[in-house]
Write a protein that binds this DNA or RNA. Structure first.
Lengths: 136, 136
DNA sequence: AACTCATATTCAAAAAATCGAATATGAGAA
DNA sequence: TTCTCATATTCGATTTTTTGAATATGAGTT
C-alpha cells in the first residue's frame, strides 16, 4: 500500500486506493453507521477470513475505519475524515455505494444473519452489529 | 486497467482507480473547467510525454475525460459522469483537489506558461487552454 | 512523395497489489 | 498451564499497474 506522504492534510491517493477495490467497498458498505464484528463480514461476504482481515487492515491504514476489541472479537466502524472536503467526498461515496445492487444485497444478508432466530454455527455468541450514536 | 462490469450504471472501482494516481489527479486538476492541449500537460508536470499520454488514455477509458483533435494537437477536457451520484462525488473530489498545495502550484504554472510573453520552445504555436462554456 | 512535429502505442522490465495457505497472536475458558 | 476460538500476520506465488525507451500514427508542410 502507498504511504501517507503527510505533506497536506489528507492523502487523496491513499483514500482513493482504499476505495478502488470491491472487497473494501463491500466492507465499508456493511459498516454503514453500525459497528460490525469481523465474523459477520466473513459470513456475509463469503470470503476467506484472512482476506477480510487484510482488507480491514488496509482501510485502517488509510484512516477510514477504526477497530475496537471486545474479548476475542474485533469491531470495526467507519471514522469520517477530519478534513471537511474529504468528509464530504466520503459521505457522497457511501451514499452512492448504498444504491448499488450488490451492496443492497450484502446489507440485507447482514440483516438476515444477525436478526434471524437461526444463527449460523460460525456466529454462535458473536456480538451483533450495534448502531453507533449519531455524531455530536 | 479494470474493465467496466456494466452491471450497474457506473463502475465505482473504475472511477476510484482512475483517481488513485498522482499523475492522473494532477492532469484532472489542470483541466479544471478548461480544455487543455497535451503539450501543456507535458510542460507543466515535467514528466515524459508518453507517460502523460498513457495516463490520459487511462482517464479516457475510465470515462472521465474526452479528447478533441485540432490539427496535430489534442485537447482534453473533463466530462462529468452522467450518473447523478457519480457526478456529485466527482465534483467534490475536484473541489478538494483544487485545495492541495501541489495542485495550486500546477495551476499557477499553467497560467504562467500560457500567459507569459516568453513562450517555451516546446510550446511555440500550441493552442492555449480555452475555457469551456458553462454547461446548460 | 519526404519531412516535421504532436501524440499514441508497444514492449519488456520494475514495482506494487492481491491472493491462498500456513502460521502467529492474544483473549477467554478449563 | 493448556486448549479453543476470533482475528491478524507472514510467506511465496500470481496478477496487475506503472514505467522508460523505442517505435508507430497521423496531420500538416514542403
Amino acid at each position: 500500500m502507498k504511504k501517507n506522504s503527510g505533506s497536506n492534510r489528507y492523502d487523496l491517493e491513499l483514500l482513493f486506493s482504499a476505495l478502488a477495490d470491491r472487497t473494501r467497498l463491500r466492507l465499508l458498505n456493511l459498516m454503514g453507521d453500525t459497528e460490525v464484528c469481523v465474523c459477520f463480514f466473513v459470513e456475509v461476504l463469503g470470503v476467506p477470513q484472512p482476506k477480510v482481515s487484510r482488507h480491514l487492515a488496509y482501510l485502517r491504514k488509510a484512516g477510514v475505519v477504526e477497530a475496537r476489541r471486545e474479548g476475542k472479537w474485533m469491531h470495526y466502524r467507519i471514522i469520517p475524515p477530519g478534513d471537511e472536503r474529504a468528509a464530504r467526498v466520503f459521505m457522497e461515496v457511501r451514499a452512492w455505494l448504498a444504491e448499488e445492487d450488490q451492496m443492497r444485497e450484502d446489507r440485507s444478508k447482514l440483516m438476515n444473519v444477525c436478526c434471524s432466530p437461526i444463527v449460523p454455527l460460525r456466529l454462535m455468541g458473536a456480538p451483533k452489529p450495534t448502531r453507533l450514536a449519531p455524531e455530536g
